[in-house]
């Protein structure tokens, strides 16, 4: 096998760990990720006892060759985008660890856990109040949005 770059080596390790020991309700499309380590699809089930119980979501992770120094670009994709105050209808997620608070010590797994916990703690299904405006004007890449993070309990 040809020499892997540090980011590929790290992603390979993460992929193995996610296949072997995924957080509850989370599965990675291993075949696709093995073909292209820089783009993964992850399936996420709404946890039981939450507003999203029985729903199934699809997340797309894109990595640059500066990963893990650069955060992954993470969006919900597919036909079912969770209705949540921090998730826009185009799949963009407002979560500080995806931009400002990203650390190379975090991982795909910790991002998944944060998203699961964000969904699980939701008390009322609704879109962000500026959804219509944001979706019309934002960049395709959510990392190009300068997010204002509100310390919300939602």
């Amino acid at each position: 096998m040809s020499a892997m770059s540090p980011s590929e080596r790290r992603l390979q390790k993460e992929l193995m760990s996610l296949i072997k020991d995924p957080p509850p309700g989370v599965t990675v499309d291993a075949e696709q990720a093995e073909q292209n380590l820089l783009q993964w699809t992850i399936f996420m089930e709404g946890a039981s006892g939450t507003l999203y119980e029985g729903e199934r979501f699809q997340l797309q992770f894109k990595f640059s060759n500066k990963y893990p120094f650069d955060s992954p670009e993470v969006t919900f994709v597919g036909s079912n985008i969770p209705v949540h105050p921090h998730i826009y209808s185009n799949g963009h997620i407002c979560l500080s660890i995806l931009t400002d608070d990203w650390s190379p010590a975090l991982s795909v797994q910790s991002v998944c856990l944060s998203i699961v916990s964000m969904l699980s703690s939701c008390k009322e299904k609704q879109r962000p109040h500026d959804n219509a405006f944001y979706v019309k004007t934002c960049s395709k890449n959510p990392k190009k949005t300068k997010w204002w993070y509100h310390d919300d309990s939602v």
């Binding site: 979560l95 500080s96 405006f133 944001y134 934002c138 300068k146 204002w148 509100h150 310390d151 939602v154």
Partner: peptide
């Protein structure tokens, strides 16, 4: 996990549409 600050808005809503 899950204790990160999560956001409600992005700052483009503060600027006008043009």
């Amino acid at each position: 996990m899950g204790d990160q600050a999560e956001g409600l808005t992005n700052n483009s809503s503060e600027t006008n549409i043009e």
